[in-house]
Write a protein that binds this DNA or RNA. Structure first.
Length: 561
RNA sequence: GCGCCCGUAGCUCAGUUGGAUAGAGUGUCUGACUACGAAUCAGAAGGUCGUGAGUUCGAAUCUCGCCGGGCGCACCA
């Protein structure tokens, strides 16, 4: 159950009935009542909840907002609800003051729901796929992939908590042009190991990791590929290296707390014939044409600036063709209602044509959301570190985990919305100082555990929640904390609806802050045993909330630090 | 040139879809441990919300112009 939601509905009911009453009595002249917006004001003096409905209705009613608010308040009946009083403030806000019962009820709910507290069911089991990372298996993952991994995984967790059925999917780009270049680069490195004259081709992969891969292969198989046909040899190298890299990607992501349900191979779309089927489908629909030996998709018929090539004049399909087939597979073959992709900002130009293609497949493009993630800029000693995979020498995800740890890295990436340009200061992140906000939150959790441990140590018996008198919690610090705890289900709802998981990171920081304030003003282990029990119940509820949110972010909630 | 993203305190960023006196963290300064963890708390200082207009009861938020930064605009992925 969700107390904020419940009270919001109660207030809508109270206000709605009052407005209807006013209309019937001829006090207000209103045709249709718009949706009544209820919010929790920032300032405490503005009550527990408020609505701006009077200001919204003022124009229609041809009255000034304060007068409308007065009519609504005078005709409102809130007997038997959580509302204690209503007052008019500022330019026409109606503020509601509530009986604290809703807060005590919240603590009780948290105790009863435990790790499920915060879960809501706006998704109603609807299937939504989140595709993210999808790093090229031609090398190690960079910071952009790391950010995508942290954001995508948290988004999936938030959607899951919001009642959606959410598989996580990784698209493996194991086909096409770049893989071919990868093969040529590997071949050159292999030949070099035997002192033969070979060079990594123009635009190939220069990274040292390719040398290491070929060294391993040489150790295993020796010179057996020297006499092999070049084409065949490259295929062997590609298979070997892709497997190695992909295994590394899998273990790195697992170390990062990210586990995919499906690893979807681009190559499989060729093997199954889905790419040719998809192109055939588009042809039949008349969405293609041939020009200069290439097959083009009429993207311009779907509001895109220009048309796009599907099959090059050399007969090889483009990446885009593969991506269309992939999305056809997602929406039609597998029947997803909703698909979310997380892409780097350097792919944003791809969004309109992808949506256009989806529409061409007969699928409403609104069912596809693409989150464009701004690129990560690495700073070291105040200098920007360039990260080109081609030239090698980039900070990889495994470097990052090793240096700053999973918790700090995941928290850091989830601190900023996807559309902000993120500066990742390595010196600061490496430093395990109190400046890192993840410690602030974890410390709150550890502090609570420490108190709870002490309670156990001293053999203090704590009754079940319904045996505790929560109404003794009256201090401002206690009230503020409970109000914040009550907001978790709403916070998850909002994070899911706006597909912005970073909201919950900020939320959990606020919870931690309010707990620290509480800790400094109220003692838990006090003489008055009834009060002590109430406070134990409150900190346990706080601990549950912090642990639940950190769980969504795959960050540990330590009992001591 | 065209398109997308961003511009809020010295720095890093929030700002509940148009609401009340624009908020945190960090940094600077001043205080609080002989009771549950000082990785904490309390207080002070810090603002032309890039800029100019427009929309209205009301704009950091919406519209348009301009300035600055990032990223795209391939028969690459």
């Amino acid at each position: 159950m969700n107390m904020v939601q419940k009270i919001t509905e109660q207030i809508r009911e109270i206000v709605g009935e009052s407005v209807k009453g006013c209309i019937d009595k001829g006090i207000l002249n209103i045709e249709d009542i718009p949706e009544i917006q209820v919010e929790i004001p920032r300032e405490r003096e503005h009550g527990d909840f408020s609505t701006n409905i009077a200001m919204v209705l003022a124009k229609q009613a041809k009255k000034n907002p304060v007068a409308v608010a007065r009519d609504i308040v005078e005709n409102a009946d809130y007997e038997g609800t959580y509302v204690d009083s209503m007052e008019i403030a500022g330019p026409g806000f109606i503020n509601f003051r509530l009986n604290n019962l809703w807060l005590y009820k919240t603590v009780e709910i948290i105790h009863n729901e435990k790790e499920d507290y915060g879960r809501v069911n706006i998704g109603q089991g609807k299937k939504v796929m989140v595709e993210f990372v999808s790093a090229n298996p031609t090398g190690p993952m960079h910071m952009g992939n790391a950010r995508g991994a942290a954001l995508g995984d948290s988004l999936a967790a938030v959607l899951d908590a919001a009642g959606y059925d959410v598989p996580r999917e990784f698209y493996i780009n194991d086909a096409g042009n770049q893989v071919e270049k990868f093969g040529k680069s590997l071949e050159a490195r292999y030949l070099q190991l035997f002192g033969l004259d070979a060079e990594v081709p123009e635009g190939g992969y220069q990274g040292e990791d390719l040398v290491d891969l070929m060294k391993e292969l040489k150790e295993r198989d020796g010179d057996k590929y020297l006499d092999m046909d070049s084409e065949e040899r490259q295929q062997v190298f590609i298979r070997y290296a892709l497997k190695k890299n992909l295994d590394k990607i899998k273990t790195d992501l697992a170390d990062f707390g990210v586990n995919f349900d499906v690893w979807f191979s681009e190559q499989s779309l060729y093997d199954s014939g889905e790419i040719s089927d998809t192109i055939e489908y588009l042809k039949e629909k008349g969405y293609t044409y041939e020009q200069e030996g290439a097959i083009w998709f009429k993207a311009s018929e779907f509001g895109v600036e220009k048309d796009e090539v599907l099959i090059r004049s050399n007969g090889i399909p483009t990446y885009f063709a593969g991506d269309i087939a992939y999305h056809r597979n997602k929406f039609i073959t597998r029947g997803y209602d909703w698909v979310i992709n997380i892409w780097g900002a350097d792919h944003h130009g791809h969004v309109p044509r992808m949506k256009g293609a989806v529409e061409a497949l007969g699928v409403n493009p609104d069912r596809l959301d693409v989150i464009i993630m701004q690129l990560v800029r690495l700073l070291r000693e105040g200098e920007v570190v360039r990260m080109s995979k081609r030239r090698g020498k980039a900070i990889t995800l495994s470097d990052l985990i090793e240096e700053v740890g999973r918790d700090a890295a995941r928290f850091f990436f989830n601190l900023r919305a996807a559309d902000t340009h993120l500066d990742f200061d390595l010196d600061l992140a490496v430093e395990k100082s109190s400046e890192n906000p993840v410690f602030y939150v974890q410390y709150a959790h550890a502090r609570i555990c420490s108190i709870l441990n002490q309670i156990v140590q001293e053999g203090i018996q704590v009754p079940a929640i319904d045996g505790i008198n929560l109404t003794l919690l009256k201090e401002n610090a206690e009230i503020d904390l409970m109000r914040k705890l009550a907001e978790l289900p709403e916070e998850i709802t909002r994070a899911a609806m706006t597909i912005e998981p970073t909201r919950i990171t900020r939320y959990v920081q606020e919870v931690a802050a309010l707990f620290h304030v509480f800790y400094n003003t109220c003692r838990v282990m006090v003489e008055d045993e009834r009060l002590m029990m109430a406070r134990i119940a409150l900190i346990e509820a706080t601990r549950i909330v912090i642990a639940n949110v950190l769980g969504l972010l795959s960050i540990s909630a330590p009992e001591r630090m």
